Amino acid sequence: MRVFACLPVSPFSLPEGCPVRPAIAPVRPARRVRVGCRGIMAAGVVIVGACLLLAVNVAWNGRVWAADAPRAAAPTPVPTVPEHEGAGHEAWSFARCTATVSDDPDGARDYAEDWLNHGGGLEAQQCEALARIELGDVATAAASLDRLAHVPGWPVGDSAHAGMQPDTPQSLRRRAAVAEQAARAWQADDSPKQAFDSATYGLMLEPDDVPLRLVYARVAVELDQPQRAIDTLTPLPSVPAERDEALVARAAAWRRMGRIEQAMTDINAALKDMPRNGAALLERGILYQREGQMAQARADWQDVVTLAPDSDEADLARQDLSLLETDPEAP
Rank of each mutant, 00 (worst) to 15 (best):
Q296W: 02
G163R: 08
A131I: 07
D137W: 09
D114G: 13
S93D: 15
H150P: 08
G86Y: 04
D209N: 14
R318H: 12
A229F: 00
V215I: 11
D320E: 13
L233K: 02
S171G: 02
S198Q: 04
C127V: 03
A253V: 03
A185I: 06
V81C: 08
D190I: 12
D244G: 04
M257D: 10
P235Y: 01
I267N: 00
V48W: 08
R284M: 09
R213Q: 08
P26T: 11
C51Y: 05
E242L: 13
G292F: 05
D189F: 01
T265M: 09
L203G: 05
C37S: 14
V305H: 01
A162W: 04
L236S: 11
A141Y: 00
L130V: 05
C37E: 15
Q181G: 10
L7Y: 12
R298E: 15
L236K: 06
T168P: 01
R31K: 08
D189L: 04
A185Y: 02
R71S: 14
H84L: 08
P11Q: 09
A73D: 15
V20H: 00
V219Y: 06
P211W: 04
A95V: 03
R28V: 09
P309H: 01
A112F: 13
G278K: 09
D146V: 06
W60S: 11
L122R: 05
L172R: 09
C127T: 07
Q126C: 09
L172Y: 07
A108K: 01
L52I: 11
C127H: 07
R96I: 05
L172H: 00
Q170K: 09
D208Q: 11
A67N: 14
D231F: 10
